[in-house]
Design a protein around this nucleic acid. Sequence first.
DNA 1: ATTAAGATTGACTAATCAGTCTACAAAAAT
DNA 2: ATTTTTGTAGACTGATTAGTCAATCTTAAT
Lengths: 186, 186
Amino acid sequence: MDKQEQILKAALKLFVEYGFHGTPTSKIAQEAGVSNGTLFHYYKTKDELVVALYIYIKTRLSACIDSNRGEGETIKATFKRIFLSSMYWAIENPTEFQFTQQFHSSPYLSMVSDEEIKKQTKCLMDFMQEAIDARVLKQLPIDLLFTLLSSQIYGINEYLVASSLDAEKQKEVINLSFDLIWDMVT
Amino acid sequence: MDKQEQILKAALKLFVEYGFHGTPTSKIAQEAGVSNGTLFHYYKTKDELVVALYIYIKTRLSACIDSNRGEGETIKATFKRIFLSSMYWAIENPTEFQFTQQFHSSPYLSMVSDEEIKKQTKCLMDFMQEAIDARVLKQLPIDLLFTLLSSQIYGINEYLVASSLDAEKQKEVINLSFDLIWDMVT
DNA sequence: ATTAAGATTGACTAATCAGTCTACAAAAAT
DNA sequence: ATTTTTGTAGACTGATTAGTCAATCTTAAT
């Protein structure tokens, strides 16, 4: 029903399959089942569509990560919950995850304002700063810690995708990886 | 003099600046100072050029990593040398490094044969297998270890690029990061 | 010297693409 | 009921693009 969302869904699918360069707006409109004109009614340019899609996906991811933080949770438990929810989000939304990777290492990234990026990571950053202040995490620059964590998630996901394990083995690898990371940052 | 190399250099620069999609072959030829026809004489299609550039860069990177392995080197020393040479290669060749990232998370990756990829990583993989067998590295799947190492290098590089530190501080972060990784994998 | 093979050029083309425009329909506001 | 706003369509266009081609130049072999 919601044409705007249909357009984003179609764009996501095609961008991941054919790349930004290989996906004409006409194909996106076609895949979304709307006219060419409708696409440009909602998004003034193709670039704007690409950026809007990134923000759309990132907003949903960070909402997922930030949600259901328990009350009396220990720092380690929170850290693990964040790690696991990121990991499982990536596994359950492979297309979205691949898109963010693709976007991240493309010139499009510079079209997103710092403000927007900070908005997406504030919750996580605040938690990590607390954990550093509480002397639980190592006394390292918070940006470094953040980057180490994210890149580990990318890496582990890549491994899981490449070696198609069953759900059980997958869970093992994820838990084992968490222990590695936890040892590293504490 | 070597037109083929000039074409690769020009393509590299433009791809990183404008993305694969935003770089017409005509601009590549222009930047390289050759004619349109010459470009297509060496590379039958644009895709072929993109893939050739990836292989060209990766070959030089792995040659750099695989070189100067000392004789009586301990496993830790070898591991550190590999880590450091990768890190410094990334710092000294930021455009090349960014290109590989961009390529890696694009649909172009599937155009590179498994064989070609294995050729690039064989040396490093063999060393890691030795280190696992010698019970120095943790008993983990080698692909997982490899992925963890590479993604950490990506991540640390990203951090270093974002926070423009002086050479001294940069070195500190790199050494400190090595210790974190070494603790993690042993 | 002559030939053959590859290198280089740049004009050319057929196809494609991002984005526009006009027309019309639906809904909302007055 | 009528006006205004918003959504939707799809034909259209001017610019651009990947790739071709025939002609010339260079190099090396015979």
